[in-house]
Design a protein around this nucleic acid. Sequence first.
DNA 1: CGACACGTTGATATCCCTCAAGGGGAGTGG
DNA 2: CCACTCCCCTTGAGGGATATCAACGTGTCG
Lengths: 235, 235
Amino acid sequence: MLSRTFLTAHPTPRLSDDDRDRLEAAIARTVEFDARQIIVRENEPLTQCTLLLAGIAYRYKDTDEGKRQILALHYPGDFVDLHSYPLKRLEHTVCTLTAARMAIIPHEAVRQLTQASTTLTELLWKSTLVDAAMNREWLTSVGARSGIARIAHLFCETYVRLRTIGATRGWTFDFPLTQIDLGDATGLTSVHTNRMLRKLREIGVLTFRNGTVSIGDWMQLCEIADFDDSYLFLH
Amino acid sequence: MLSRTFLTAHPTPRLSDDDRDRLEAAIARTVEFDARQIIVRENEPLTQCTLLLAGIAYRYKDTDEGKRQILALHYPGDFVDLHSYPLKRLEHTVCTLTAARMAIIPHEAVRQLTQASTTLTELLWKSTLVDAAMNREWLTSVGARSGIARIAHLFCETYVRLRTIGATRGWTFDFPLTQIDLGDATGLTSVHTNRMLRKLREIGVLTFRNGTVSIGDWMQLCEIADFDDSYLFLH
DNA sequence: CGACACGTTGATATCCCTCAAGGGGAGTGG
DNA sequence: CCACTCCCCTTGAGGGATATCAACGTGTCG
């Protein structure tokens, strides 16, 4: 059941057994990638989608002035580019952060899924829209929150998403981003990211060291972050 | 043909005559709204979608600290909340900017459209994903571009979108946002927005006065903005 | 005519960036 | 096994972009 983690991360609408089988059957093959490898290039014509089975991936965009904006982070169970099915190309790049295993689903198979089941269509469509809701939450963070709130918010989101798929151990989880990555995701420099991390550590709310996060005070972290998980559409 | 402007803004995939009729028939009724009126409240359960026929609408989110982030602007032909069909609620607010006319399409009718036609499904799905692509471009703007570039970028996007639906007159178009709105969309204060507008005016690139935009030098405006319209998926 | 919202500008403050330097860990090659 | 390199983390100092505060002008609407 390669699609099991996807269904964990997206419990509604609930699929019938037949639909689960259809989804599973749509997977053409699996592929392994090294860390920091490009999966999908900006604007290249696409004919398949990619479901992340293991590892972490991210999507980003570069600007004229050489700045990089990380648009999304992906954990096991996420489609990294299901939106390529209706769009036929992506306007950004998709990349692995760590070594990763991916399931490949041809666009043609997605089309057959949508023809076979309205519920499947809704589930797949919804998963692309939860992704968009995260884009908007990040936009709100970067546009309207302070540096420390942005960093705190990213950790809150990551904790909730990873817990959903069982990738946390108590208040601790692996999060192998560099401080440069964190900065590129939050619109801060790595230097300022470093200072915000120190602040969070000093007040005992969270420590981030060697790719491991340890949350000391979840309530206060949420407060600093202005975090409310309703945009993740888990309930 | 209430759906005509929608099809102009979303030319691909191209619908058959039957599908056009189906889409048109899905419209239950039309509604008029005053300016600055809330259309959809955050997290309220939804059973219908709203297609903007005339006027301008926007979507926004408020933060703890009382800041407002405008997430999207909508012009005639845009669904303002088609994503409510798979999501069942929205994590943000939808509001009119000007007086507006909307077409109402019940979720049940959308479901029937998706059952009736794969092409219609793709088109509707795609339109929600183009919306998401704009969310990501705004995220990139706010996270990685300077104040003047963000303002310039918003004008570039608006010009292209309005031209597509025939709402420009040469290099001029109506854009009845306040400078506070512009700031809320770009993550700037209205004071700083004002100074950026003055700068654009002084170098002869663009003037914005009394809700009317006049572009003086499109090429330079795009350069300042780091603008490339491929994320709008018009071609 | 008064109230109010928006636009404009100046002065000052602050958050965050840039530049710089040094330390530590991991990988590599001699 | 050690030296070397490279990348990342960390911290300090200074600067710049943008925010904040304040005041006044202008247009609109009841």
